[in-house]
Simulated assay, not measured.
Amino acid sequence: MLSYCTNVHPAEDLDGILRQLDAYAVPVRQRLGEERLGVGLWLAAEVAAGLAGDRTARHRLRAELSARGLAVQTLNAFPYGGFHDEVVKHSVYLPTWTDTRRLRYTLDCITVLADLLPPDVGYGSISTLPLAWREPWSPSHDVRAGIAFEEVTRVLRTALARHEQPIRLAIEPEPGCVLDTVADAVTWLAGRVDPEHVGLCLDTCHLAVSFADPAATVDRIYEAGLRVVKVQASAALHVERPGTEEARAALAEFAEPRYLHQVRELLPTGDVLAADDLPQALAELPATGPWRVHFHVPLHAPPDPPLTSTTGVLETSLRALAARGELPHVEVETYTWNVLPPRQRQDLAAGIAGELAWARTEVTR
């Protein structure tokens, strides 16, 4: 079941979430002609805690979803809250996996998802942040994070004993974080976690920004004894010649103040230069090689030239997974609709439907 992630909507209370689903998810389902639409719910920590502590409320939410023709097999538990604040930037990485609030939030999401899963899905998934932003991080932080994952695994095993469907946690590597690349995540997770309960969330925008080979990346995950639990179907900005006046002007339109837009530049040597945000990249990177920018752009609507998108990375990743006989959850995650350059924005329901139609074709293929 293909889903779209509701972190594109700003609501952080249960009634607000239902209003957003009425305003967007239901029209999207109707546009697509589907009897049932998958939604990857984002529940802010306060909402997740309230639902986790009230079984009646969870059953009400499940009934409300069913009445709207919506189904949940995955949660996005990366942002803790405030994801649509005026400025988010580095705060999205807080609390980290060394903070008990992150553990509590994740456990609450497990409780909620266990009561939302439709009976016909094989498992549930919850994506989470790659430990923390890279600074500060020390060996003692590693130990504390490892202990937290041990506790999550214990709870996931207990949940499986109570329910027929397993729930799996999916670590989502992101540029600039402790687990910056998929290779970093594989190194950290392999031998440390139980792959039956903890695996990878392959965000194909993040993967593209790293300039890693998608097929080789998928192979590396499985050769390490891990699995892709969830694919976040997303695309980054690509510009082949970022030093031209035209390219710099086009990129500057995407330098908005809410989210962090990490940039990587590929040198002829194969080395990759890094900048933590687009304004820094425009000021500091040499712009002699191609750039990729962590800005989730609509899958079905490429940016205006000279910019392009990295949908090819998503397509190659899906083919590599299919070659292994794998069918992880696929969630379209373009949370940036409201911060796109004005001329590239669309009606939100129409835009989400267009992305899902595009992704449905790719997943089917």
Results as ranks from 00 to 15, higher is better:
E46W: 08
G176E: 01
T153Y: 07
I352G: 11
D115R: 01
W137M: 05
G199I: 01
G81N: 00
A67W: 02
K89F: 07
D304Y: 00
R324Q: 02
T100K: 11
G325F: 11
G351L: 13
L131F: 10
E196A: 14
A252N: 03
L200A: 12
V47Q: 02
V293R: 00
R345E: 05
L37C: 12
G146L: 01
P95V: 02
V293F: 00
R60S: 08
A215V: 12
E135A: 14
L267I: 00
L103C: 08
V92L: 13
Y105D: 07
L51P: 00
W358M: 10
G50E: 15
R157K: 14
E150S: 12
V47P: 03
I221A: 06
F83Q: 09
T187Q: 14
T128N: 06
Y4N: 10
R241E: 15
R29S: 09
G81F: 05
T100H: 08
I221M: 11
P173I: 13
D304N: 05
R157Y: 02
W133V: 09
P303G: 02
P305A: 09
D13N: 15
L116C: 07
A281P: 10
E223C: 08
P130G: 04
H90M: 03
Y259D: 12
P257H: 02
Y80V: 00
R227C: 07
G50K: 11
A57H: 05
S125H: 08
Q280C: 02
P342I: 06
M1A: 15
C205I: 13
T311I: 01
L299R: 01
V198C: 05
E172S: 06
G50M: 05
P342W: 06
Q344S: 14
L321N: 04
D203R: 02
E326H: 05
S125A: 15
H163N: 14
A235V: 00
T96E: 05
L117S: 06
Y80G: 00
R62T: 04
E174R: 02
L340A: 09
Q280F: 01
V178S: 02
L189H: 07
A25T: 08
E355A: 06
T364D: 13
R241H: 15
I171G: 04
D120W: 09
H9A: 14
V228Y: 06
G146N: 05
R241K: 12
A161L: 10
R162G: 10
S138M: 10
E246T: 01
A208Q: 00
T74F: 08
L200E: 12
E253T: 13
Y335S: 07
H294M: 03
R58K: 12
A215N: 03
T204R: 06
C109H: 11
V363W: 14
L267V: 00
P306R: 04
A281T: 10
A233F: 09
V293H: 01
I167K: 03
T288C: 02
L207W: 11
D108F: 13
L116Y: 04
L61G: 04
E150W: 08
D15C: 05
Q346G: 13
A45R: 15
C205H: 08
L37M: 11
Y24F: 11
G16Q: 12
A359D: 04
P303Q: 00
L273P: 13
E265R: 05
P342G: 08
R258N: 06
V330Y: 13
D22M: 05
I147E: 15
P175L: 04
E174F: 01
L278W: 11
I171S: 06
D54S: 14
P139E: 07
S234E: 11
L327H: 13
E246L: 09
I221W: 03
D85T: 03
E362S: 12
P303M: 01
